[in-house]
Write a protein that binds this DNA or RNA. Structure first.
Lengths: 159, 159
DNA sequence: CAATTATTGACAGCACGCTGTCAATCTGAA
DNA sequence: TTCAGATTGACAGCGTGCTGTCAATAATTG
């Protein structure tokens, strides 16, 4: 795979370029898999991720806080949250510290949907990880986290 | 990070779940970085990737072939290609084997844009990879490629 | 206390990937 | 040769993430 397209790259840079290309493809495949996984519960990948973020949260938060936790823009999460509220999976609770910034709470129905998908996700991801050593996954995670850190430093966070 | 949310997961599955979450964030950050990188040439991340795929291709191909190479749906690439053609960076060449499926060729202007971005991308990715060992990147690439392979097997390819 | 600044949500609009459907075209088997 | 199936591009529509702008509300500062 060493060809003219990697002129100007350090060995690390050439390897990283390949890794980034593979990451794009992985993202597409994960999104497709997430769609299949969540469809049976009547959700989508993005809605499930937002629901999870709220479910995993240690305390009720406004939309903007959840967005920051997820590393997404505020408005992206806002619209998904509005959809989830309309679907009855999330509810807005009054925020004693801020009139407009209502707190997000998961409803009983939302909790049921979250647990239903969790029961599907666990065996799915176990199968996906089968055959890969924990050490390798941790190395990969380390590389990805290092990239995220570097990219976040050089990136003017939106707004 | 071992908490109740990883019940039902094997050790590999728990690590993989973390890795997938990190991958989503990485994708978002890479897209943002790609936007900054390509904006100066008047392109976007997606258009640059399609242009690169055509530029790297060993022979002229119809849109559907390029889409398969990139692991994307045919129509996603089709619309970007139409935009690139309208912008004068790509051109449609007659295909002796198929009247409708014209072949994609890069124009002089497209070549200039591609090279301009390549000159920006190389130092950018070198800096990004700096401090990460090639061995680690290759392990991460190996993990990602393994995931892609597994996901592609279990996924009914679109259409 | 008053005025400036920061945060938050509402609204509108864009880029991109997906799907489904349709007609034109090519391919291969009967 | 003919006809059924595959391939390809055109068109329309959806979900998701982004940006920019605006008004309402908090927080901070003089």
């Amino acid at each position: 795979m060493k060809n003219s397209f990697y002129k100007g790259h350090t060995p690390e840079g050439a390897a990283m370029t390949q890794f980034i290309r593979a990451s794009f493809r992985l993202h597409g495949l994960l999104m497709a898999a997430g769609a299949r996984l969540t469809r049976s519960v009547g959700l989508t990948s993005a809605r499930w991720q937002v629901l999870s973020a709220v479910a995993r949260s240690s305390e009720p938060k406004p939309v903007a806080w959840v967005a920051r936790d997820m590393g997404l823009a505020r408005q992206s999460v806002q619209r998904v949250v509005n959809d989830l509220e309309a679907a009855g999976l999330l509810s807005f609770q009054p925020n004693p510290r801020h009139i407009r910034a209502t707190l997000l709470a998961i409803t009983d129905e939302g909790h049921r949907a979250f647990e239903a998908i969790t029961r599907l996700q666990a065996p799915w991801v176990n199968g996906l990880a089968e055959g890969t050593k924990v050490r390798e996954i941790e190395t990969a995670l380390h590389v990805v986290q290092g990239l995220c850190r570097k990219l976040q430093e050089n990136a003017p966070s939106a707004e």
